[in-house]
Amino acid sequence: MNNPAIRIQNLTKDFSVGIRGVKLRAVDNLCLEVGDNEIFGLLGPNGSGKSTTIKIILGLLEASTGTCEIYGKPSKQVDARRSVGFLPEAPYFYRYLTGRELVRYYARICMVPRAQIGDAVDSVIELVGMTEAADRRVATYSKGMLQRIGLAQSLVHDPQLVMLDEPTAGVDPLGSAAIADIVRELKRRGKTVLLSSHLLAQIEGLCDRVAILHRGKLVREGRVADLVEEKDAESLVVEGLSAEGRAAVQAAIEAQGARLARVEKPRLSLDAYFLKEVHQRESEHAANNDSEGSN
């Protein structure tokens, strides 16, 4: 596969709003390439054109000008979507189906061969961690569960490219971390993932590359590390250093011709702190349950 997973060239999308043909430019001359087996983040505030871009990539909307290809096939062709999975923003499904029925339904829509459907459905449901709730009706699912079952339906036909529109919006940090783990697992399996988000902290450690959109325009694009690292600074994290020790270190640094720019306490992000605490309690809870069970 020499073609990139997604190639967008000079893409512009105008919506006509109002009666006098007033145009609203949702995407403005966007050029992007997403390579194979890459986790790509589409970042930007609400209304910056992320969903519109994704819908154009999927061929759900027509571009006003410009082109868009998936693995070399124009988005307009239905064929281009054969190997694409999509999780819409705030997904909504047929409520009277159970999670398993829903995933099976979409597997059949995507023409997964009959003999493989059972296994395919079970394995994606397990991948998204919905095995226990799979036989409950979708109507009873929480937001996080809907997101997971939506992820399962987007993966059931084993697509090479997966597009997730705001997969972590409205999901608690625990759920977001689980979704991030699934995305990493997909990358490990050789898939390409494009995800959009306005929650930047959750994306930071996940994406290989990001593009930042603002009012439909591409503001920045590149590797996360390249964008946010201070290129000419390094931080040392030390423990158990006395005041005299610190003075000595500072002297040593200055002797090297460098400068101690600032001293700060390393901080855990609140997200990471929350996850650590909750995980600890979860495992205690599980341990208690186990010991009760064995009594």
């Binding site: 819908k55 759900l60 979507r81 999509f86 997904p91 499904f93 829509i109 995507c110 939506g150």
Partner: peptide, 14 residues
């Protein structure tokens, strides 16, 4: 309105 059409038409469905 429920955008289930969105999920459906994002699949290889004419």
């Amino acid at each position: 309105e429920n955008r289930t059409a969105l999920t459906m038409l994002a699949k290889p469905v004419y």
